[in-house]
């Protein structure tokens, strides 16, 4: 056996990719969440790509500024204001989630719990808003097969994409609640790592991220 091989083996044993280590510098749990997110992004990507095709092939796609005008309690038409508020809420919940992760890494259990609670609150409000919006446009006569503003594919894609996103928000809320309970019971403290909070955080940010694109492509364009 020559000297080079010994040297090379030594280099390998020390290198990040030499085995026995996490080559990306993240644990396998966190990396799994990352690639799950990529995979999920492909599902949303396919939905949005299909939506794009419908959009460019259908004549007379409705103007969203005329469709989404409802806002609760104020009684006047306010185009897009409500969905802007929903976006705002979701971004805020993403923000509090980031703070929760930050607090948990500082081993500040009460603060982490507080921010997790705020995130859950934000997410719940978002879901309620979505329910309101769905209720409203269903009330206006939109179904999966028809709507008063024109092309039926408009409402079909709307319900499909926001519905699928809503399911993600819901499952995110469930995950967040479980995580919050675990934080409360000191599960992560005992384990010595708050990574679980961060992983759920990744998922929650992804839900927010998807909403940014849904909001852009569906409402604004």
């Amino acid at each position: 056996m020559n000297h080079d091989a010994v040297l090379e083996q030594k280099k390998i044993m020390e290198s990040e990719w030499g085995g026995g280590k996490a080559p990306f510098g993240v644990s396998w749990r966190k990396y799994m969440m990352w690639i799950f997110i990529v995979s999920d992004a492909f599902t949303f990507g396919a939905f949005l790509a299909a939506y794009g095709l419908f959009r460019v092939t259908s004549a007379g796609w409705p103007d969203t500024y005329e469709v989404f005008t409802a806002f609760p309690f104020i009684g006047v038409e306010a185009p897009m204001l409500f969905v802007a508020m929903m976006t705002f809420i979701l971004i805020c919940s993403s923000f509090t989630m980031a703070l929760a992760v930050s607090a948990s890494y500082k081993n500040d259990r009460t603060k982490a719990l507080k921010f997790l609670g705020l995130t859950i609150l934000g997410g719940s409000i978002f879901i309620l808003c979505q329910v309101y919006e769905w209720y409203h446009i269903i009330h206006d006569g939109a179904t999966m097969t028809s709507n008063p503003w024109g092309v039926p594919l408009f409402s079909a894609t709307f319900f499909m994409i926001t519905g699928f996103h809503g399911l993600h928000v819901l499952s995110g809320l469930i995950l967040l609640t479980i995580t919050a309970l675990k934080v409360k019971r000191g599960f992560y403290e005992r384990r010595g790592s708050y990574e679980g909070v961060e992983i759920v955080g990744l998922y929650w940010h992804f839900v927010d991220l998807v909403w940014v694109f849904v909001f852009t492509f569906f409402y604004l364009l």
């Binding site: 990507g45 794009g52 095709l53 460019v56």
Partner: peptide, 23 residues
């Protein structure tokens, strides 16, 4: 890690571009 997350997204963008072009 950044590359392994971001680069695959090109593929789904390719699908979207093909569909839009087709449409």
């Amino acid at each position: 890690l950044i590359y392994s997350i971001l680069l695959p997204l090109i593929l789904i963008v390719a699908l979207a571009v093909a569909l839009l072009y087709e449409g």
